[in-house]
């Protein structure tokens, strides 16, 4: 609110360098935006065009024979709503916990006073670089009772080293006076964290939130391996296997002995690409809807002075 007049004041005395830069920036970004939008547009028009034409690559700029059967088919997948609920739950809970843990650990690991701080920090960061393999991971999960449990979606990703590093780097850029002042006022570690740190590092928290929300939303590998209870299937998993159903026909072909009935079922499944495209649109759409919420934290600059004062 208070910034507006200042920006206008600056605008008046525009430098020629600034103008050239503006023009170039606009051109370059418009080009990049086009390159990114077009494939998506391409996917979209193919989902509403005649499936035969789209399979043959005939739909490139304008939709042909518009229809919505692909969307109807996807919406007819059984228990889609239940899967949607699970996906939303895991995304919301998972994101909240991950953001909290990343912010808190990112802050705590800047504390020089912590007992063996470096050791613990390195212990966490190192996990980015190794992977035990799926068999021991699976057995571990089963042993601690996370197999077929909702928490298998949440707990393993709560501590994510990459996000912690991001947060820590950001916290380090916060002027030390800020926290020192709070400490002097008698605020404890937790109080400083909630009252001083969180408001200042909001942009990076928004970033972590987007990253982890999208990762949660898109994840299906964990369902694949660790969940056989159909009530816990996520939206992504349900859609994933719907796609795979259409494309894993090789084995079907190699094993079946009745050619005629096989031929019929193959022809039915031959529109896998349209299905895949439709699923992409269906999955990305909710993400785009919640995007603006996060974006609000990017366009407003932080006024550290304001926090200080």
């Amino acid at each position: 609110m208070s910034k507006e007049p200042k920006v206008k004041a600056v605008k008046k005395k525009q430098d020629p360098v600034d103008i050239v830069m503006s023009v170039v920036t606009y051109i370059v970004y418009s080009f990049f935006a086009f390159v990114c939008v077009y494939p998506f547009y391409y996917i979209f028009i193919n989902t509403i065009s005649n499936n035969d034409l789209s399979a043959r690559g005939k739909v490139t700029f304008i939709p042909i024979d518009i229809h919505f059967t692909n969307y109807v088919n996807v919406s007819n997948i059984p228990s889609l709503m239940d899967a949607f609920r699970i996906s939303v739950s895991r995304t919301v809970i998972g994101t909240i916990l991950t953001v909290f843990a990343s912010a808190f650990l990112g802050y705590m690991f800047t504390k020089e006073t912590m007992w063996h701080r470096k050791l613990w920090y390195r212990l966490v960061v190192a996990t980015m670089y190794f992977n035990a393999g799926i068999i021991p991971f699976f057995i571990t999960m089963k042993n601690i009772g996370l197999y077929n449990s909702f928490w298998v979606y949440i707990l393993p990703t709560v501590v994510s080293p990459f996000y912690i590093v991001l947060c820590k780097t950001f916290v380090e850029s916060v002027p030390a006076e800020l926290t020192d002042a709070a400490m002097l006022d008698g605020a404890g570690t937790i109080k400083t964290f909630t009252a001083v740190i969180i408001p200042v590092i909001k942009p990076i928290l928004a970033t972590v939130a987007i990253f982890s929300a999208v990762a949660q939303w898109n994840s299906f590998q964990d369902t694949l391996l660790l969940v056989s209870d159909t009530k816990l299937f996520t939206l992504q998993f349900t859609l994933y296997q719907y796609i795979n159903q259409a494309s894993s026909l090789k084995a079907l072909v190699n094993s079946s002995t009745s050619a005629a009935s096989l031929a019929a079922s193959l022809a039915h499944a031959a529109t896998a690409t349209s299905i895949r495209m439709t699923v992409t649109i269906v999955v990305v759409f909710p993400i785009l809807l919640v995007y603006p919420i996060f974006q609000r934290y990017f366009v407003k600059g932080i006024m550290i002075g304001a926090v200080k004062g």
């Binding site: 407003k300 600059g301 002075g305």
Partner: peptide, 13 residues
């Protein structure tokens, strides 16, 4: 996105 966040974190003053 990460860098956009970092830029937003710069003290406007």
């Amino acid at each position: 996105i990460m860098y956009i966040a970092a830029i937003t974190g710069i003290d406007e003053e």
